Amino acid sequence: MQTVGIIGGAGFIGSYVTQKFLNEGYAVKVSASDPANAEKYAHLSALNRAKNLTLVTCDVRDVAALESFMQGCAIVVHGGTPFQLAVEDPQRDLLDPTIRGTENFLAIANRTEGLKRVVLIASVASYNTSFPMPHPNHPVGQVFSEADTPWFSAEDHPYGQAKFLADQVVRKFIEANPDLPFEITTVSPVFVMGNSLSPRADSTSMGMQHLFRHKIAPNPFVEMLYANDVAFSVVDVRDVAEAVFQAATRSGLHGKNYLLSSESYRISDLSLMLNQQPPAAEAALVYSNTLATNDLGVAFRSAQETLHQAV
């Protein structure tokens, strides 16, 4: 039984990734930054094949703890960077943890014996820091793919900047280390939606679904989304977990960064569907999922199926 370590394996996306690997017969180690918070991790014990799951105390900012956590893992999935839209200090709360955390993680991976695969759960922001707004230089109506030129702006939200710059760290690391004994693959989902496996409702993804369903605008960023009725690209959390698993268990994917996306609907239509009403307009495809479909074999669910399940 191979062991996979999942950093962030108790979160909204991470819980589905944990369940996928358990279902496939792996022994799973999940990092726990706050093991005293029983509520945060209680749902993991209810997962299928939970007897093969170990919760390991590990603050990923602690290099020694992270190094210990990764020992004995054939696969490591890193999905533990912060997903926050409202922060007091963007440099301290988003940029530093994401970028320096990625640097530390890669350095540790490089000296972890027996490691065969690393999968990083990034974000569509690694291709477009303006997300969910359109790529400013991309032709209107043309589907954006991995072959297109990424967009970065220091004027965009710090979360998008952090994800883009962290991915640049990965690209530079791969270029500087051409003879790695393990493969690194990245998946970059658009906005991830679906049901939470945890009864907690404090994840950013679940929070945004709540805001869209009830048309609540708690800050200028969300007000802007409503004012522009943005075409919001979504992907099912179950499809993200499948893509992570396939990226971790297929060879020959080293260095690739896969966009994970289903369809796009205007915010007004997302609100309608989250209230069990039909959308007013047809779905659009803003970000391509062709590469992920071809290489990873993921059959992406429609946005309507995802939203129906979420309700």
Rank of each mutant, 00 (worst) to 15 (best):
M1Y: 08
Q2A: 15
T3S: 12
V4K: 10
I7S: 00
G9S: 06
G11H: 04
G14R: 05
G14H: 04
N23W: 08
G25M: 02
S31L: 11
A32G: 08
S33P: 02
H43F: 13
H43K: 09
A46E: 14
R49H: 15
R49Y: 13
L53E: 07
T54I: 10
C58T: 11
D59M: 02
V60H: 07
D62P: 06
L66Y: 01
S68A: 15
F69N: 00
M70H: 00
C73M: 02
A74R: 15
I75C: 01
G79Y: 10
P82F: 10
Q84A: 15
A86D: 15
D89P: 02
R92G: 05
R92F: 08
D93C: 04
L95V: 12
P97N: 06
T98I: 08
I99D: 03
I99H: 07
E103Y: 06
N110M: 09
E113Q: 14
I121T: 09
A125T: 11
T129A: 09
S130H: 12
P132K: 09
P132D: 05
M133W: 14
P134K: 07
V140P: 05
G141P: 02
D148S: 12
T149C: 10
P150L: 11
H157M: 10
Y159F: 11
Y159D: 04
F164A: 08
D167S: 13
V169E: 04
E175C: 09
T185K: 03
V187K: 06
V190C: 11
F191T: 02
L197D: 09
P199R: 10
T204S: 15
S205G: 05
L211M: 11
L211E: 08
L211W: 10
R213H: 10
N219C: 10
V222M: 09
M224Y: 13
N228I: 10
V235I: 11
V237W: 03
D239N: 14
A241S: 09
A243H: 01
A248K: 05
A248T: 00
T249V: 11
G255Q: 04
L260T: 03
S261P: 02
S261G: 01
S262Y: 06
E263G: 11
Y265I: 07
I267W: 10
L270E: 03
L270A: 01
M273H: 04
M273G: 02
M273N: 01
N275Y: 05
A281H: 15
A281G: 12
A283W: 00
Y287E: 03
Y287I: 06
T290L: 15
L296C: 02
L296F: 04
L296V: 05
V298A: 04
Q309H: 12
